[in-house]
Design a protein around this nucleic acid. Sequence first.
DNA 1: TATGGATTGGAATTATTATTTCATATTCCC
DNA 2: GGGAATATGAAATAATAATTCCAATCCATA
Lengths: 288, 288
Amino acid sequence: MSLDGPTMDERVPRDFETLRATILDRRESLPKRIAQIAAYALDNPDDIAFGTAASIAASAGVQPSTLIRFAQQLGFDGFTSLQQVFRERLRERNSSYDERLQALRAKAEGGAGHRAIFDGFVAAASTSLNDISRTLDDAHLEDAISLLAKAQTIYVLAKRRSYPVASYIAYALGKLNIRNQLIESAAGLNAEMIAFATPADAVIAISFSPYAPATIEEARTISEHGVPIVAITDSSFSPLAQFARVWFEVAEADFAGFRSLSATMALAMAMTVGVGEKRRDIGRKRKA
Amino acid sequence: MSLDGPTMDERVPRDFETLRATILDRRESLPKRIAQIAAYALDNPDDIAFGTAASIAASAGVQPSTLIRFAQQLGFDGFTSLQQVFRERLRERNSSYDERLQALRAKAEGGAGHRAIFDGFVAAASTSLNDISRTLDDAHLEDAISLLAKAQTIYVLAKRRSYPVASYIAYALGKLNIRNQLIESAAGLNAEMIAFATPADAVIAISFSPYAPATIEEARTISEHGVPIVAITDSSFSPLAQFARVWFEVAEADFAGFRSLSATMALAMAMTVGVGEKRRDIGRKRKA
DNA sequence: TATGGATTGGAATTATTATTTCATATTCCC
DNA sequence: GGGAATATGAAATAATAATTCCAATCCATA
């Protein structure tokens, strides 16, 4: 308005991260009460998003006017515009991951650099995690864990895309001192390995469409020998579901032609650690 | 207040899901304009959470008074209390994963069943993903991809906990027709394998504390031969960081003693697919 | 088609909330 | 220690938003 005043055209933070950085940056030089509200804002961003100037000021132990001065000091013209940033943050975070994923796919295809690809994989993983925590059936998890906890040896069966999960399960079972056998395809000794399994053992089998024929074949053989199978797969039409005593449907989002493994991993780890716990409990009871 | 009025003690929905169910349930019997705002509310919950009665009404194409009647019909005493439910929903969803993770850890340790364990792993994965998407340096990613895109053969080096990531990288590189060699410990031929690597190749090495000695040893040897290394590790003190041409710091949250792999996986996939793209681009240029 | 009840639109009213102002207190520098 | 500049508190004011009210309209039913 006036020509003499400081022009104040210092960049006003428009997004939360910039704002956060700005605040942290100036933290030292802020007056006491302003610093107090600044700290409160970063600690309780949700309150800023939803509260009224009066309620926030009260929670932070300052006057409403201080809150407004804080906003102005950051370059906003009032509390309301500062609040917008905090609200936008909630919107962003909350905006359906699916939508974001769509956008990112488009962006990546448009050749928007490698950051877009990375963001895409992160979004795919997040989507998958959201999804599975909505859909996982607690009772199935309990069943699977009980079944596996009773097994003498746990066989882990997975090829190709699912193999990383299997190898992590094997690693974790090993660390928990649970006897296990990873059925790899490397040496071609799978048939022999499988022949050792008895109904007192159990199998964790993982396979997604297009199902690796070897996995299906081995699962069939092993189930015909009466060994119970816990399966992780992607649909009720999966051949694995047929052979399994307990099975989980996991829908992983994909990006750039590769599916996420995050949901499968989370489930696999929960099963593994669950079995470890259950075994400890049983051990304790036996002693008592 | 009055004794004669309808007591209105029909359950007022306190959480979003109940509210949603209530609305869907009554949908048929609602008057036209009320139905219109009801549909809008379920389609744009964020707008309800943040907007003012006037702005929402305008977006939905109704009068503010209709919005209030809608709220009252549901048993709320006004728009404001209806809005609370929509705001609470955002808070819930958004409640910092870290806090949730803390709570879940406590719950799981208190022996609250296996669902809590599962939720813990999901939360750990989500936290890690959030973290890495905040901290990843785009320039490093570009550097790593350029470096790997030039390599004749990409060697993938990881043991124990990191091995699943390595195997997924190898799988993905294979699918993309990029020559690669997974350095496994199985047959004990690692030293020989490594000896084949030349400065025209490149290595992706992954290791987290406690760093598997074999990984470190092999990384050292290979870097001494002048083969460039891209490392994924967990701190700048990591011995891997020393040998690496480019390295990434990835902080994975842990739960029940096992770290998530989700952030590492996302980064690994972005690198892999990024290399695939870059190669295609180069191929196209050569032709042109 | 006339009639009563329900529904709707729009403006008036009331309540709430942000912002400004000014007196008082604190801090910092000479 | 004095004085100017800055910071703070509290209440007044202005702005904005929610709610209510009433007239107009629509709709079903006789």
